[in-house]
Design a protein around this nucleic acid. Sequence first.
DNA 1: CGCTATTTTGATGTTGATCAACTCTTGTGG
DNA 2: CCACAAGAGTTGATCAACATCAAAATAGCG
Lengths: 249, 249
Amino acid sequence: MNTESIDGEGKSTPYPQRLTGACLHCSLRALCIPDHLPIDLIEQLAAFVHNIGPLHKGETLIRAGEPFRAVYAIRSGLLKSSVFGESNAEHVAEFLLPGELIGLDAIAAARHITQVTVLDTAVVCRVPYEQLLTLSRRVPGLERRLLRILSAEISHEEWFMALEGAENRVASFLIGFGAKMEVRGYSAVEFTLKMTRRDIASHLRIAPETLSRVLKVFQERGLISIKGKKIHLLDRFELETRCSHPAGG
Amino acid sequence: MNTESIDGEGKSTPYPQRLTGACLHCSLRALCIPDHLPIDLIEQLAAFVHNIGPLHKGETLIRAGEPFRAVYAIRSGLLKSSVFGESNAEHVAEFLLPGELIGLDAIAAARHITQVTVLDTAVVCRVPYEQLLTLSRRVPGLERRLLRILSAEISHEEWFMALEGAENRVASFLIGFGAKMEVRGYSAVEFTLKMTRRDIASHLRIAPETLSRVLKVFQERGLISIKGKKIHLLDRFELETRCSHPAGG
DNA sequence: CGCTATTTTGATGTTGATCAACTCTTGTGG
DNA sequence: CCACAAGAGTTGATCAACATCAAAATAGCG
């Protein structure tokens, strides 16, 4: 496994000229930064966006403590961001899916608190922060967009924190993950959790054994069915009752 | 106790003309939005900032679910923001001190998820969000400032979540609160926790009884001394060891 | 000064963590 | 393609931390 982080390194690939419209034609446009920008501004944005990858499982995109230089937009794959607490225990802060932005939490400290690791082969777009900020001065919508993303993250966090009990946490995770998949055009009730149980448990702040048991209980109650990493939500309503909120992750 | 929220209501007092320089001369300027803005822009900002208060203990500044119209900067006093989980249980998300900004977490959903309540007589500045955003278009530093505030909140949250165990949580809270007091010109080791134990416990996600016991243990070990709501940190270093981070709360 | 809310203290209960063993999956090289 | 190894996931037994319940002590307030 790679011990070097990739942030700002030579592994990046600038878009070749013919791909200037990369952002324009990106299937994730609606989820990503530019949203409903006029075409000329999208092209300005694309001009300094660099493609990185494919990155492979186990590689580190951002190392904790590194100076903050750029944010990353995920094009494909799966990553996790984690914090290392006392005794260097890893805690998974969130799972990162295509269309999501990585690194905005590092703005304040000017360096990354979280470490970002690849869980499943991924391609990301590197967006230098200074240039993004410069562009955002001319594009009001972009600025709002960034605020919105950060704001959403906070309110989700606040909300999730209020959940007590292992079962509620797990239910919330399943519903939230399903919702994220749905936004990306997949089924909200049938999906594959490519990350390990250990990582999920860490994210939910429960022991892996507890997660395993809760999933089993859910299955016995007919709420879900499990085939290894493949999950099928059978009683979405009942699961939602346990966390009374539309989305999360 | 008042059952009406104050957001957008008639209780506000626009600055009289002679106080146009209110933001300019505000003792919290360094902590608040304008920071190092040129004087003319500070005055533009002050032009649409309204003074609200004094608000008294138990009053609700923002009610959960309300549409998002403005952010508030705290001038004096103490407030809490809380989320209501299942079975309507209150969970204190954070305590709000002078110089802090309230409501940015509502940008994404366009309405408030958290409820903001006054814990100790407070005066706040109401800043309409649309106008703030308009002004920020002309002031790059302002935009950065907002991003920075949100970013800091996220990274603090991520960090705090990684702490396990009631003692670590309490230690972190004490150190973090002290740090906040210090920034505001007070002692970092001797302060009054005006909020109830119940609210602190809720914020730390432990039972009030557990908080009480942990505080007692800390006192017995000579880490702190307690006189009702007055806390004195005697061994700051040892407390910091338990959470290995500079600030929080 | 007495009432009420808050805090503390003690006893008991539960949830979920931990430890340990076992099974299943995945990936590798012969 | 199979054998093997290493990691991942499950299962069961035990334990500790913390919540909950109940009640006394204290502080705050009219």
